[in-house]
């Protein structure tokens, strides 16, 4: 992050409102405005021939929406759902999608100036998804760009790889 940007951040003293959740040992944050709701794990219907990170579809009050397993999308091994497993429903570019996360921790407000551009490699995640890393007092928070996670071109590439 260059000096100029830092100045700007200080001036506006901008606060980021984030929903934070855990996948494996890492903690992630996404823009709260993108999050529509957070649900407990529910019955997921498998979709034939879908890429493996697409866990299936769920019935969200009469709407059929796809659910993506963030673990698999990030290259982590699949895990059985526990009582903490949640489906974070987000609305991105007009489509509603659910993301399976290991657990949802809290809603955070952090000043933008404590975030930094991501290092080259973090937790084995393709750095494209990561917009910034937030330095909290006792831990680090990885800020995710879910649109990138979802980006169709990428998912298509992946789908092709898996076929």
């Amino acid at each position: 992050m260059n000096l100029h940007e830092k100045d700007k951040n200080n001036e506006s003293n901008e606060l980021l409102q984030l929903v934070s959740f855990k996948i494996g040992n890492e903690e992630f944050g996404v823009d709260i405005l993108k999050v529509q709701e957070i649900n407990r794990m529910m019955a997921i219907t498998k979709v034939p021939s879908a890429p493996s990170f697409v866990e299936g579809v769920i019935n969200l009050r009469g709407r059929v929406i796809p659910v993506i397993d963030l673990r698999i999308k990030m290259g982590l091994p699949k895990r059985e759902s526990s009582k903490n497993t949640r489906i974070v429903v987000v609305e991105l570019e007009g489509t509603t999608v659910g993301f399976i996360v290991d657990e949802v921790s809290e809603v955070l407000r952090i000043p933008k100036n404590i975030t930094e551009a991501p290092p080259e490699m973090v937790a084995g995640i393709d750095a494209d998804y990561i917009t910034a890393v937030g330095k909290l007092e006792d831990r680090l928070l990885i800020l995710l760009d879910l649109e990138k996670v979802l980006s169709l071109t990428q998912s298509k590439q992946l789908a092709e790889l898996e076929v």
Partner: peptide, 27 residues
């Protein structure tokens, strides 16, 4: 018939999905 949405898109062999009386989605 409900479409699977633009994200999943068209899947060969699946015309769409529907929601059953018990709330479950079936293909």
């Amino acid at each position: 018939i409900k479409s699977l949405g633009s994200y999943i898109g068209n899947i060969d062999g699946v015309a769409g999905s529907t929601i059953m009386g018990d709330g479950k989605v079936v293909m």
